[in-house]
Design a protein around this nucleic acid. Sequence first.
DNA 1: ACACCTATTTAGAATCATTATAAACTGAAT
DNA 2: ATTCAGTTTATAATGATTCTAAATAGGTGT
Lengths: 133, 133
Amino acid sequence: MLKYIDKLRNSGLRPTKQRLQICEVLFDTDKTFHFTIYELEKKIKKQINNRISLATVYNTVHAFEKKGYLKQIPINSNQTYFDTNVTDHHHFYDLKDEKLIDLENCDVGPINILKKINGKKIKSVEVLVKLED
Amino acid sequence: MLKYIDKLRNSGLRPTKQRLQICEVLFDTDKTFHFTIYELEKKIKKQINNRISLATVYNTVHAFEKKGYLKQIPINSNQTYFDTNVTDHHHFYDLKDEKLIDLENCDVGPINILKKINGKKIKSVEVLVKLED
DNA sequence: ACACCTATTTAGAATCATTATAAACTGAAT
DNA sequence: ATTCAGTTTATAATGATTCTAAATAGGTGT
């Protein structure tokens, strides 16, 4: 608990009950995972014996993303996918099962972007590998 | 015109007036371009002196995508982006201006996906390079 | 502990892209 | 020309996300 209180305080977010519970669901696990808001809401209901308003889930996820505790995954879907793995990495997307799979940086050769855009710098390089049967 | 009639016939799509007009807007140009449905609708209104129902624009774009005449660009946005450039290539995304820029394959080093997923094969490898100031 | 102020939560409404519906229309084959 | 499946269309429905405004709760100073 204390580590989440610190984490939130350090980023200027008040450690409210809801935010701490969402931290537990998101970060109290060895494995990182991918989720949509819909899936996260279900997970919260199941894991914590407390209902959190949908608006709060949206607010919190966006706040955490802004602070770098979550990453949005660029993918074409009607829903937005997030990742609790915020390290530099990539994704497989299984078109049939509609599932994401992590692709560590070392599983993709080094990527060297040769083209430069004037006055802009590269913030991130993300690879999406679509899979079919 | 005839080339589009053939193009449509060859893919089992009836060459209707609307589809031919959308072909003109999409493919009668040297440069390829990126668009959302909203932008395409505006372009059609301006370029062709004829209104095409929004539903038809959606239907047609999806039909063309299925046939490989358009590509969807994986990006997190509330709107879906399409590309008339269907060659194997990548994108810059300028976060500030919310604009896409093509990144030819040769501008990105060769990408070698080392991890394999059982029973699945790679359909596409897409790189999104986010730009900031 | 109390009061106060602002950040946060909340239910519900609003928005907006996209998809579904069902009736009218059209291309193409007979 | 007739017919029929494929298309188009206006409109309604859907569904994810954002907005709103009132209620609540941290945190600070007393």
